[in-house]
Simulated scan of single mutants.
Amino acid sequence: MTSRIAALSIDAVDPRTVADFWCRALDWRVRDEQEAGIEIGPPDPAQPGIDVLPVPERKTLKNRLHLDLRADGTTTEQELQRLLELGAVRVDVGQSPDVPWTVLADPEGNEFCLLGTAVQDL
Results as ranks from 00 to 15, higher is better:
residue 85 E to L: 07
residue 55 V to K: 03
residue 113 C to R: 00
residue 53 L to S: 04
residue 33 E to Y: 00
residue 99 V to Q: 06
residue 30 V to P: 05
residue 94 G to S: 11
residue 120 Q to F: 04
residue 121 D to I: 07
residue 96 S to Y: 05
residue 57 E to F: 02
residue 10 I to A: 00
residue 32 D to L: 04
residue 108 E to S: 06
residue 25 A to P: 02
residue 58 R to A: 11
residue 94 G to K: 05
residue 16 R to H: 13
residue 2 T to F: 14
residue 55 V to M: 09
residue 58 R to I: 01
residue 122 L to T: 05
residue 65 L to H: 07
residue 116 G to T: 01
residue 102 T to Y: 04
residue 14 D to T: 04
residue 50 I to V: 15
residue 110 N to D: 07
residue 64 R to I: 04
residue 50 I to T: 03
residue 97 P to A: 13
residue 94 G to T: 15
residue 62 K to H: 10
residue 59 K to Q: 13
residue 64 R to H: 08
residue 12 A to I: 06
residue 5 I to F: 12
residue 32 D to A: 07
residue 115 L to K: 03
residue 76 T to S: 08
residue 113 C to Y: 00
residue 10 I to E: 00
residue 73 G to A: 01
residue 15 P to Q: 06
residue 95 Q to C: 09
residue 45 P to N: 12
residue 77 E to K: 11
residue 64 R to T: 12
residue 2 T to V: 14
residue 57 E to I: 03
residue 81 Q to M: 12
residue 68 D to I: 02
residue 25 A to L: 01
residue 49 G to Q: 09
residue 29 R to V: 15
residue 113 C to N: 01
residue 3 S to M: 11
residue 86 L to R: 02
residue 111 E to R: 00
residue 88 A to E: 15
residue 45 P to A: 09
residue 20 D to A: 01
residue 3 S to E: 15
residue 80 L to W: 08
residue 12 A to L: 06
residue 97 P to S: 15
residue 68 D to G: 02
residue 95 Q to V: 09
residue 107 P to Q: 05
residue 61 L to M: 12
residue 98 D to N: 09
residue 65 L to E: 08
residue 33 E to G: 04
residue 92 D to R: 04
residue 9 S to W: 10
residue 57 E to R: 07
residue 2 T to D: 13
residue 8 L to I: 09
residue 110 N to I: 08
residue 20 D to C: 00
residue 68 D to K: 00
residue 105 A to K: 00
residue 122 L to A: 03
residue 89 V to I: 08
residue 38 I to Q: 00
residue 95 Q to Y: 11
residue 5 I to K: 07
residue 5 I to M: 15
residue 46 A to W: 05
residue 22 W to Q: 11
residue 49 G to P: 09
residue 71 A to K: 01
residue 70 R to D: 15
residue 60 T to Q: 06
residue 58 R to E: 10
residue 32 D to W: 00
residue 35 E to Q: 14
residue 89 V to Q: 15
residue 23 C to H: 02
residue 71 A to H: 03
residue 47 Q to T: 13
